[in-house]
Design a protein around this nucleic acid. Structure first.
Length: 575
RNA sequence: UGGGAGAUCGUCUAACGGUAGGACAACGGACUCUGACUCCGUUUAUCUAGGUUCGAAUCCUAGUCUCCCAGCCA
């Protein structure tokens, strides 16, 4: 199956890695996945996870999981736990689990080195003043009046920042670059800020915290990362990334990371190369952390793992498979072009994986009674069904059969449309694994609605009999009313009713475009073998779609299923 | 009007001066005790205008459009 060995896209990052290895630039590659623990992981993160861990695995390198926890005011342990769970679930193992905060002492020493080299200075400007001095996109900035402080003064001030002598926001450490640069990131970017906040990993040990550019680049170098993969918006930061790595030069200055050696952390600093790729946007959903958090906190969805959410946790509860998600990102590829991927591609990958891996079961989600009149009412039989139509290793199961059945309401039409292959008055259809029935009689209620079909079963056409090869146009599924187990079935659809919920140019926001029909809960019946499934087991309910036993709510006595995705339906399409 | 990046079938993506290819979707057909799966076939693309060249998606020139950057966020 292509699910096992997806066709590998020869994308540009894979080529760079291959070339670097071939040229002997590296003997092994090291990558990392560096999430900030301030939210749950989503499908977009999965792209980065698949890329970083995937490349490392493919080329026999290693990949670290690193929490980019340099801003304690936004981060939370709930997230660090969820992130680890999600990465593992996706099928990846990190070589080492690190935190940027593990390197705080290294960063501090590195900052002192920059100060000594006249490459950084302590600035007293307020945030507002810094903004003013920075200039605009089209006008250069101006030098801070504190820019020419002496090395001694800067050293003293920065050490006192570290000692906690100054209030939040009163001072920053800035790189001394070029206030006139066309690249605004190079207009003396902040390296450290004062923030007397408790940190989830380091407690109250630090009153100052490093900024992203400084911490991220040095973290990569400390960990010996060879290829630092990130998204397009960091392209402008690359000169700063390289500046930090080069000026600090960890590889030639072991004293800077002595603290790590002492702590027993293996350290071989590298000169990492940052490579940017485009994010993968998906239509009919939102992927920004802010919007996802809002959906959760305002109870617009049922938590982070709501099956409609594009979070890893949500997709897991929905019943999506790790292999399907990995296949999806491999199929999409990696480039630098902005793009929006059709949700249908993801669904197709999930179907492809599940078609091969999900055993089949019978279930009816919109029940209509069908009675077989030419069998005794107390007739009871046990039929044997294959669990998979083309893979014998799935084995078989027993399915109870009786003359009193539930069939799908949409498999009967009193006035059939053209091309209808299912049951109609005086028409014939095959009951899956049973034989051919003819609809003799309709029973209607007072409102005129059909409530029961009375049919005769052609005994010659029973499955296994020579007459079973008689051709009828349609085959429908059923469950024995006497034996079936009532089940709650949740039918999910896209969370938003517009292609691009992020587009608010019409004055409406994503919240105005929530799809009211995105979750329907129905009560149906499943065969006993489906009720007996374990939580998170996935099956195909024949002719309906793929379903998963809900990881929280499902029990054998009261089964609860989530619809993962429907089957492709070329009939529904034309109808 | 500063700096950075990107424009190729409907969508995603390949090409590295030499036949614009693949995947997905769509459409048509075969098969079918799942209108699924599978199989076969078909349609559709180089942002524009010039130039270099025997030959240009690729190189050059000039435009056009899109995205990112003015956090003490990442």
């Amino acid at each position: 199956m292509s699910t096992e060995t997806p066709l590998l896209q020869q994308h540009f990052i894979r080529q760079i890695v291959r070339d670097d290895l071939a040229a002997g630039k590296h003997s092994v590659i090291h990558t990392r996945f560096p999430p900030e623990p301030n939210g749950y992981l989503h499908l977009g993160h999965a792209k980065s996870i698949c890329l970083n861990f995937g490349l490392a695995g493919e080329f026999a390198g290693t990949c670290n999981l690193r929490f980019d926890d340099t801003n304690p005011s936004k981060e939370d342990v709930e997230y660090v736990e969820a992130i680890q769970r999600d990465v593992k679930w996706l099928g990846f193992e990190w070589a080492e689990l690190r935190h940027a905060s593990d390197y705080f002492e290294v960063f501090y020493q590195a900052a002192l080195k920059l100060i000594r080299g006249g490459l950084a200075y302590v600035d007293d400007l307020s945030a507002d003043e810094v903004r003013e001095y920075r200039g605009t996109l089209t006008e250069p900035g101006r030098n801070s009046p504190y820019r020419e402080r002496t090395v001694e003064e800067n050293l003293d001030l920065f050490q006192r920042m570290r000692a906690g002598e100054f209030a939040d926001g009163s001072k920053t450490l800035r790189a001394k670059l070029d206030m006139a640069s066309g690249n605004i990131n190079l207009r003396d970017p902040a390296l450290y800020r004062v923030r007397k906040v408790h940190h989830q990993n380091t407690g109250d040990a630090w009153p100052i915290y490093p900024m992203y550019d400084f911490a991220h680049s040095l973290s990569d170098a400390v960990e010996g990362i060879t290829h630092s993969l990130c998204t397009l918006e960091f392209e402008d930061h690359r000169p700063l990334y390289d500046w930090c790595v080069d000026k600090v030069d960890l590889a030639n200055d072991p004293a800077l990371w002595q603290s790590l050696v002492a702590a027993g952390l293996p350290t071989t600093p590298s000169k990492p190369r940052q490579i940017e790729f485009s994010r993968g946007n998906i239509n009919y959903t939102v992927m920004s952390k802010r919007k996802l958090i809002t959906l959760v906190s305002e109870n617009l969805v049922d938590g982070w793992d709501d099956p409609r959410m594009p979070t890893i946790a949500g997709m897991r509860r929905r019943g999506f498979t790790p292999a399907g998600i990995r296949l999806f990102w491999e199929r999409i590829g990696v480039s630098k072009q902005n793009s929006t991927i059709d949700m249908g591609v993801l669904e197709g990958c999930i179907r492809e994986d599940l078609d091969a891996k999900a055993p089949r079961r019978l279930a009816v989600i919109d029940p209509l009674k069908l009675t077989i009149t030419n069998l005794p009412a107390d007739h009871a039989e046990t039929l044997t069904f294959a669990n998979h139509p083309k893979d014998d290793t799935f084995g078989s199961r027993s399915v109870p059969f009786s003359p009193s059945l539930w069939i799908e309401r949409e498999d009967f039409a009193e006035v059939p449309p053209k091309g209808f292959h299912r049951l109609k008055p005086d028409g014939e259809v095959r009951l899956r694994g049973v034989g051919i029935v003819r609809c003799d009689e309709l029973v209607k209620d007072a409102a005129g609605e059909v409530v029961e079909l009375r049919c005769t079963l052609d005994l010659e056409s029973r499955t296994g009999m020579p007459g079973s090869d008689r051709k009828v146009k349609g085959t429908i599924h059923w469950v024995s009313a006497r034996d079936a187990v009532p089940a709650v079935v949740r039918l999910y659809d896209r969370l938003f009713d517009v292609n691009d919920p992020d587009d608010d140019s019409d004055g409406k926001t994503y919240k105005d475009h929530l799809n009211p029909g995105s979750r329907r809960v129905v009560h149906g019946y499943v065969e006993p073998a489906a009720a007996g499934l374990e939580r998170e087991d996935r099956v195909q309910f024949e002719r309906l779609g793929f379903f998963v036993a809900d990881m929280h709510d499902h029990t054998h006595a009261a089964p609860v299923f989530n619809r993962v995705v429907t089957l492709r339906d070329s009939w529904a399409k034309q109808a």
